Amino acid sequence: MSNLSFGILDPIKLPLVSRLYKAHYSSGKAKKDELTVVAYHEGKLIAVVRFRSVEQFRLLTGMLVVPEHREQGIGHKLIEYCQHSVLQHGDFCFAYEHLEAFYAAHDFKAVEPHQLPNSLKMSFERYVNSGKRLVAMQYQA
């Protein structure tokens, strides 16, 4: 897909991301204290991923590609952009089980929950205990 652009969102534009989440991923909540990376197609916001700081660690969270743009490689391109400009060795994500291969293709490795830092381990356990089928992963550039 041509006419794609990527960048770090200016926090003043967070309402755009909030509207995107409200329309397509109601559990996603954009916050000012997070690093938000976005993808645009022909000037229209079509994908987002956030990085939340938890103590001295970072957690990739809230990745979304709007439904009409899925299955076109946009998620891969967004993560590739992040690999070159945002991701740091040791960053974490809690991937849905069906997305483990997606993140593994971008240098995330599955880790056992007991290997997570305590602050992340508690969050991971809370999500899993609520019924989410997740895999703890760590970025290893």
Rank of each mutant, 00 (worst) to 15 (best):
E34H: 06
Y25E: 10
R70C: 07
K44Y: 13
S85K: 12
V17K: 00
K109S: 10
Q56G: 07
T36H: 13
K29Q: 15
P67D: 11
K13L: 14
A39D: 04
S119Q: 13
K31N: 13
P113R: 00
Q138N: 07
L16G: 03
D10Y: 03
Y103L: 01
D10C: 07
L64I: 07
V48A: 04
L20M: 15
L120N: 05
S119N: 08
P67F: 07
Y40W: 14
T36Y: 10
S123H: 08
N3M: 11
E42G: 13
L99A: 15
D91C: 03
A47P: 09
S18T: 10
P113G: 03
A136H: 00
T61W: 10
K32F: 08
E42L: 11
F57R: 00
S2L: 10
N3R: 05
L9R: 01
K132V: 07
P117S: 11
E97G: 12
K22V: 04
A47M: 06
K77I: 02
V17C: 07
V111Q: 08
A30W: 02
R58H: 14
E71P: 00
Q138A: 12
P11K: 00
F51Y: 15
F92N: 01
Y25I: 03
R58V: 03
G73L: 07
F92H: 04
E97D: 15
